[in-house]
């Protein structure tokens, strides 16, 4: 079942397009990562889905929401840099936004306690938010997004600003939240996306370049690759390697030549023959599988 679907979603600021005609659907109960480098348009996309920005063109459809009903009843949103009222305590803030989401004061207070416990800042619940650390604010941010048990939880770079320990804790928390609601989160770190998400939307320069489940994408983009290192100036050999019929793609990274091939056997023979014939100063020849990382890097570098 689809929770949300967007068609031709576009946003331009002062005529400059930031998000260009996105099309995607989010399935209920999935954890989806919106992955892309900085400036890809991830934040803009999430802000449009949460209603903070108005799309320049295109539509957003929430299923299960009646005509005219406020979609904000069904979404929780954590901005990249959540700002709170520093003079409020963590619990006061949760109760406040809970009541704004149509909970009664009692319901909001109960839910606030549960969530404070869950995000592990229960001890600091009566402390002013002004005194919270960055990690505590991030967790309070997740709690406020969950206060009204939304159908769709959207988190903008939930772990990017955290230290390794805080990052680990938030990822574990998301792992748990995943079982309760649909999650869409943005990140520029592939590792985070691979670790907890089911599906991936790969975004670059305002467009979705790839989408699908992590496993499908992994298989789709897994091809064989040789990594070759040579003493001296490697770049002179690039053209020669490119000339092999068995080679699909060649690029240089950190002084090594990466050779994407179709047929491993054939390519190995081609390369090794050439190495012996022309006596190349070979330092390293290794076989590896390309990963999502390679796909991501390739996309980002373009």
């Amino acid at each position: 079942m689809t929770v949300i679907g967007v068609e031709k979603l576009t946003k331009a600021f002062k005529g400059k397009p930031i998000v260009k005609g996105l099309e995607f659907q989010l399935e209920k109960g999935r954890c989806v990562a919106l992955l892309g480098p900085n400036g890809a348009g991830k934040t803009t996309t999430l802000r449009m889905l949460s209603g903070l920005l108005k799309p320049t063109a295109g539509t957003i459809n929430f299923s299960g929401v009646q005509q005219g009903e406020d979609i904000r009843n069904h979404i929780g949103y954590l901005p990249q840099y959540p700002v709170f009222h520093p003079w409020m305590t963590g619990k006061e803030f949760l109760v406040y936004v809970g009541q704004l989401a149509h909970l009664t004061k009692q319901e909001a207070a109960e839910k606030a306690d549960q969530l404070l416990e869950k995000v592990a800042i229960y001890e600091s619940r009566n402390q002013r938010i002004g005194k919270y650390s960055g990690g505590m604010k991030q967790r309070l941010g997740i709690a406020q997004a969950m206060i009204h048990s939304p159908q769709l939880l959207m988190l903008d770079e939930p772990v990017s600003s955290l230290d390794p320990i805080g990052r680990r804790e938030v990822l574990t928390l998301m792992e748990e939240l995943k079982t309760q609601t649909t999650i869409l989160f943005s990140t520029h770190i592939l590792g985070d996306a691979e670790e907890i998400s089911d599906d991936l939307l790969l975004m670059h320069q305002g467009e979705i370049l790839e989408s699908g489940s992590i496993n499908t994408l992994r298989q789709k983009h897994q091809s064989a690759k040789f990594e070759i290192a040579l003493f001296g100036d490697t770049s002179t050999y690039l053209e020669k390697i490119k000339a092999f019929s068995s080679v699909q793609d060649v690029y240089q990274e950190k002084g090594e030549v990466h050779v994407v091939v179709e047929d491993i056997e054939l390519a190995r023979k081609d390369i090794l023959t050439k190495v012996l014939e022309e006596d190349w100063p070979l330092e390293k020849l290794a076989l590896s599988k390309t990963t999502l990382e390679d796909l991501f890097m390739k996309v980002v570098k373009k």
Partner: peptide, 13 residues
Amino acid sequence: KSGVAELVLVKPV
């Protein structure tokens, strides 16, 4: 300006 509105106004108010 501070961004609190970003949290408050995504609530159904």
